[in-house]
Computed example of a mutant assay.
Amino acid sequence: MLVQMDDKKLEKQNRYVMKLIDLMREHPNLPVMAMVDSEVVQDDCCAWWDASFTGEPHLSKLCVNNYSERLVCWDDDTDLNETFENCGFDYDDCGITDDMSDEEVNRIMEQKISEFDWLLCIIAPIGIPDPIIPGNGEIYRPTKHEQFENLRERVKKYREAAERA
């Protein structure tokens, strides 16, 4: 039996898709980057994973911090302090002190951030989908706490094995 997606969920997804299409028409020379939440792929046991648009597509600047190999987003909605830190900058090394005004600090941070090479692109946020695909059994997705506890147990086992070696 075929089932249909809930009208509200379908409307939201269609709105995101139309926004993406509009941005692609307005900016035909910009690449589209699917920004996929790490929770979508929880392990490597499957070749395919389902995901959904989880936010409105938008323009953003991207770069890779070569020191931390971290992807950094910078747009009008991104916290300047977060972007500065994600770029790998150190407040002390950049001459930022506690006695500086917010305006001075922001000017220095923006100057340092703008020294990086950035790619302007269209971002399509992708994340764990709403449960719209009918299941023939319960789908289990561990919570963040369970994922952390599983990682903690694996680290503990590795350390114990290393101590025995």
Rank of each mutant, 00 (worst) to 15 (best):
M1P: 01
M1D: 10
M1L: 06
L2F: 03
L2V: 09
Q4V: 05
D7N: 12
K12S: 10
K12R: 14
Q13A: 13
N14K: 14
R15A: 15
L20P: 01
R25C: 02
E26T: 07
H27K: 13
P28N: 11
N29S: 04
N29M: 01
L30G: 02
P31K: 03
P31F: 00
M33W: 08
M35N: 10
V36E: 14
V40C: 01
Q42Y: 05
D44H: 12
C45L: 15
C45K: 15
A47T: 13
W48H: 05
W48D: 07
W49T: 04
W49S: 09
D50S: 13
A51H: 01
S52K: 03
S52G: 12
G55P: 03
E56W: 00
E56S: 12
E56L: 02
S60D: 08
K61A: 04
V64R: 11
V64A: 03
V64N: 06
N65G: 02
N66A: 14
S68G: 01
E69Y: 07
R70H: 12
L71N: 02
L71E: 00
V72D: 07
V72M: 05
V72N: 04
C73S: 07
W74Q: 05
D75E: 14
D76P: 00
D76Q: 07
T78A: 06
T78H: 01
D79V: 04
L80Y: 09
T83P: 00
F84P: 02
F84C: 06
N86Q: 15
N86E: 15
G88Y: 02
F89N: 03
F89C: 08
D93F: 05
D93W: 01
I96E: 05
T97G: 04
D98P: 00
D99Q: 05
M100S: 07
S101A: 08
E103W: 00
E104G: 03
V105E: 14
V105C: 13
R107S: 14
E110T: 11
E110N: 14
Q111C: 11
K112P: 00
S114I: 01
S114A: 10
F116Q: 14
F116Y: 14
D117H: 12
W118H: 01
W118Y: 00
L119V: 15
L119Y: 11
L120A: 05
I123A: 04
I123L: 10
A124V: 13
A124W: 01
A124D: 09
I126V: 15
I126Q: 15
G127T: 10
P129Q: 14
P131N: 14
P131T: 05
I132W: 02
I132T: 11
I133Y: 05
N136V: 12
G137L: 05
P142T: 08
P142N: 08
T143E: 09
K144L: 11
E146C: 02
Q147E: 12
F148V: 10
N150G: 00
R152S: 13
R154G: 00
R154M: 07
Y158N: 10
E160I: 01
E160L: 07
A161W: 09
R164H: 07
A165L: 06
A165Q: 06
A165S: 08
